[in-house]
Design a binder for these strands. Structure first.
Lengths: 282, 282
DNA sequence: TGCGGTGATACCGGTGGGGTATGACAGCGA
DNA sequence: TCGCTGTCATACCCCACCGGTATCACCGCA
């Protein structure tokens, strides 16, 4: 049993996505017959039917669905491997840290300062990215470590080190009656007239249905709150980007949020290990 | 930038392991010159030097070390993908569950019974394996789900559902003075004359240094305790395999052990999801 | 019953992966 | 200093296989 070639997997994924040989071949930049042959060869090698070619189009079999998921993961890893290898060659003792734009300023500053004080510390490139992009960058190989938050971010497949746990606060327009309160309960935020709570993306990037606006980045959120269009629940440290038009009120019964430093599981990079050690001592 | 082929990666891993082109070629069943060429091509494609061919042998560069780790992971995933695909085709609505031999009898029974009561339940094949083999089987694609224990087992890369948390107990020979106690502290187990505490394998399969015997499976442990050669700390539910020659004494200050159901992250199998749902309701 | 469109088959040419033979070079013992 | 040995790289050849073109078999549909 010889091993699957990434070329074959790429072909298969494209066909599985298009469910159409000719279109898939076009996307791949090859002709349709070689593509048909490659898929047949893959099926023969596995001894498994991956696609049902019915006269009414192509559909995935159960096994094909399984292989589709696996193949996507493998292709991603292969690309990540190439990228990580190139980066390792280009820059020794240099790390890329990904973090959500706008959050954790203090924490980041503290970590960078503490790390710079270590002897032999790696240079750190900080990449600010959109919400939830950190996971992709880590998997991609475009970043070596990232700040992420539990329970919001998808941490499966990463090793993590807890750095900071904090309560959440409600941020409301300063002019709103709620701004006068000194503390709130989660229940107080439900069904406030004219002030729907903003909707954060879920781990898969989609949004729950609801009346509030969908949040893509924090400056957008700050703007919307200042305009009096919404309110939001954020973790306490993010207060740093609020201005006079906002009011932050502690939420006494909110679940705590833990900011973690995350890196690809099984990373053996000494530089990553050193940074994690520093973070653990904060 | 075209993508890395698994054939090239396999070649590279073999060379990196042997650090010797001729031996690697022999292991691969090809001649040495094509192997040299393949590695050169890989280096050219990545634009990165992976190996230093010094006159005193071959050594890995930093980038080579990175690629070695990545490539191993990719090759493992490729093999796992093939296996999972074949299994998906061979057996629809059938799951393989891996668990440590000898532990969790009650829990397993309860889960299987509850699952069998569900409508449309998948058949479950239970595979008993050695300690720590569950992770390998999940990664391999030889198992779909596994019982594992936190904090003992390496859970990185898996999704998990907590099933049961329990305290640990000390198991000592029934004839030993400690057997008369009704409870113990961890400190009580240190430096007991003639009764060194047994050593469990760590997550990587190695053993800490120490006087006690290295444990490979539970029946061996039971035997050794019955003979009065050692004592051990185990989680409470494992008492089921003790006999008259053993005494189990609660450890009031031991850290709790959580048995979890684990499965490969990103699994989309409906059968796994159904089993996990059942487990969550135990 | 032709027409458009599907994937499969037949056949062909060129790339490239594999083989053998040999080269270049360092270490080493006589 | 000179072979000798063992290393990896180079040169060259062959054929397997990937990809291309032409075509078939088959369906749905005017």
């Amino acid at each position: 049993m010889d091993t699957l070639e990434t070329r074959e997997l790429k072909y298969f994924v494209t066909v599985a996505e298009e469910l159409h040989f000719s279109r898939a071949a076009e996307r791949l930049g090859i002709a349709q017959p070689p593509l048909s042959r490659a898929i047949q060869q893959l099926e023969r090698r596995l001894g498994v039917r991956l696609l049902d070619r019915d006269r009414r189009g192509v559909t995935l079999t159960g096994a094909g669905q399984v292989l589709l998921d696996e193949a996507r993961a493998i292709l991603d890893s292969a690309e990540a491997a190439a990228r990580r290898t190139r980066r390792a060659a280009a820059s020794t003792n240099r790390l890329t840290l990904a973090t959500k734009a706008g959050a954790n300023h203090e924490l980041l500053r503290k970590l960078l300062d503490a790390h710079a004080a270590e002897p032999d510390a790696a240079e750190i490139d900080v990449v600010l990215c959109g919400m939830g992009d950190q996971a992709r960058m880590l998997r991609d190989g475009r970043a070596d470590v990232a700040f992420m938050q539990r329970p919001f971010d998808a941490l499966a497949g990463f090793d993590t080190e807890d750095v900071l746990t904090e309560q959440q606060v409600a941020v409301v327009p300063a002019a709103h009656p709620l701004a006068a309160r000194t503390s709130l309960l989660m229940a107080d935020l439900e069904d406030v007239p004219d002030l729907p709570v903003a909707r954060w993306p879920r781990q898969d990037g989609t949004y729950e249905a609801g009346p509030g606006p969908e949040i893509h980045d924090l400056s957008q959120l700050a703007q919307l709150i200042a305009l009096g269009h919404t309110m939001a629940v954020i973790c306490a440290s993010a207060r740093s980007w609020l201005w006079g038009a906002h009011a932050a009120i502690p939420l006494t019964d909110s679940s705590p949020v833990t900011t973690v430093l995350a890196w690809p599981a099984h990373s053996r990079s000494r530089a990553v290990a050193a940074l994690v050690r520093t973070a653990a001592q904060l």
